[in-house]
């Protein structure tokens, strides 16, 4: 085994923490979505690490599904951002105070 699974899991935990921080702290919707991508990448990393550790392709297949869901999430999320931006220019979450527009 070239790289211990613990290193990969530690890196994955750190990346997920950074993504969670970005999602909670940024005020721009697009950058919040990008932070979600960082978190999804961290999850993929731990799936692939386990897949290597156990020598099982299942983890890599699950990572493929995560990538497919990330693509779907990016499409819908950015469609929402465009729709919101049409009504209220700028992409700051603080501006989105109305329940109806």
């Amino acid at each position: 085994m070239i790289v211990s699974v613990d290193w990969v899991l530690g890196l994955s935990a750190i990346l997920f923490g950074i993504g969670a921080f970005g999602f909670l702290a940024r005020r721009n919707i697009i950058l919040m979505l990008v932070s979600i991508e960082v978190m999804l990448n961290a999850v993929n990393l731990s799936l692939v690490g386990f897949s290597r550790h156990l020598d099982e392709p299942t983890g890599q297949i699950l990572a493929l599904f995560v990538i497919a869901v990330a693509a779907a999430e990016a499409g819908v999320g950015l469609g929402l951002v465009i729709a919101l931006n049409r009504n209220k220019p700028g992409a700051a979450v603080a501006d989105l105070t109305g329940l109806k527009w």
Partner: peptide, 12 residues
């Protein structure tokens, strides 16, 4: 938010 990120990484 930084606290949440740090504690998530530590808990994981």
């Amino acid at each position: 938010a930084a606290l949440v990120g740090l504690s998530f990484a530590a808990l994981a």
